[in-house]
């Protein structure tokens, strides 16, 4: 399965729903969409990985890049991930200490994301 992206607004946050596999082939599409949202002025972005079944280091790099861009613009950035298989990847790389992870969209939008 390739990657599909869709955005919706939840509690004043732009939620980017990611479906499919995030790897060296598809990660540029995610990077481009995140850049597009931030450049369009979105300042509260949540990336929902709830329907992602594969995530590699390229995808992790894109997420950290998104966090960095959002912070530089004074915005917030959160990642929704409740799947153990994906959480394991965040833990192995210690990026669970870098990226603000939430178990659900509700939790991410209620918290307000990382500033």
């Amino acid at each position: 399965m390739e990657l599909s992206l869709a955005t919706r607004t939840v509690a004043a946050h732009t939620v980017l729903e990611v479906v499919g596999e995030v790897d060296v082939y598809t990660a540029p599409k995610l990077r481009d969409r995140l850049t597009e949202l931030l450049e369009a002025g979105e300042r509260a972005v949540v990336v929902d990985l709830g329907r992602v079944d594969f995530l590699d280091s390229t995808g992790l790099g894109v997420l950290v890049g998104g966090l960095r861009k959002a912070r530089n613009l004074g915005g917030s950035f959160g990642v929704v991930c409740g799947q153990e298989a994906l959480l394991k990847v965040f833990r192995i790389t210690a990026l669970d200490q870098v990226l603000p992870l939430y178990p659900s969209v509700e939790a991410a939008t209620a918290h307000g994301g990382d500033q």
Partner: peptide
């Protein structure tokens, strides 16, 4: 760039772990 550095470090961490 920074994104490349994160990716390379994460990749080696994943390979070492798995």
């Amino acid at each position: 760039d920074m994104e490349d550095e994160v990716t390379v470090e994460a990749s080696l961490a994943i390979l070492s772990s798995l």
